[in-house]
Amino acid sequence: MEETTTLDIETLKEQYTPGSQTLHLQHRPAGGGDDDDVISTVGLYGWRKRCLYFLLLLFLVTMIVNLALTVWIIKVMNLSTGGMGNLQLSQEGIRLEGFSEFLLPLYVKEIQSRRDDALVLRSERNVTLNVRNSQGHLTGQLTVGSASVEAQCRRLEVRSRAGGQPLFSADAKEIRIGTKTFTVSGSEGAVFRHSVETPLIQSSGSEELKLESPTRTLTMGAPRGVEVSSAHGALTVSGRKDLQLQSTEGEIVLNAATVRFASLPLGAYAPASTGRLSPGQATYEVCVCPSGRLYLSPAESTSTCQAVSNFCLWS
Rank of each mutant, 00 (worst) to 15 (best):
T4E: 08
D8E: 08
D8N: 14
I9Y: 07
E10G: 07
T11M: 06
E14S: 09
Y16N: 01
Y16F: 12
L25K: 06
I39Y: 13
S40V: 15
R48M: 05
L55Y: 10
L55M: 12
L56T: 06
L57A: 11
M63R: 14
M63V: 14
I64D: 03
N66Q: 11
L67K: 09
A68T: 08
T70Q: 12
M77F: 11
M77S: 08
S80Y: 06
G85L: 09
N86D: 07
N86M: 09
N86K: 05
F99T: 15
F99P: 10
F102D: 02
F102G: 04
L103S: 11
L104W: 00
P105D: 01
V108E: 00
E110N: 13
Q112D: 02
R114L: 04
R115M: 06
V120R: 13
V131M: 11
R132K: 06
Q135R: 15
L142W: 14
S146L: 04
S148K: 07
A151T: 05
E157M: 12
E157C: 12
G163I: 03
Q165P: 00
F168C: 00
E174G: 05
T183C: 03
V184F: 15
V184N: 15
V184Y: 13
S185Y: 07
S185V: 07
R193W: 09
T198Y: 10
L200C: 10
S203F: 05
S204F: 09
G205W: 08
E207V: 12
E208G: 03
L211D: 01
L211F: 00
R216P: 00
T219C: 03
M220A: 14
G225E: 05
G225L: 06
A231N: 10
L235M: 08
V237H: 04
G239N: 04
Q246V: 05
V253S: 05
T258F: 15
F261S: 10
L264G: 03
A268Y: 15
A268I: 13
P271Y: 00
L277H: 02
G280Y: 00
Q281W: 06
V288G: 02
V288T: 10
C289D: 03
S291G: 01
L294F: 11
Y295K: 05
S315D: 12
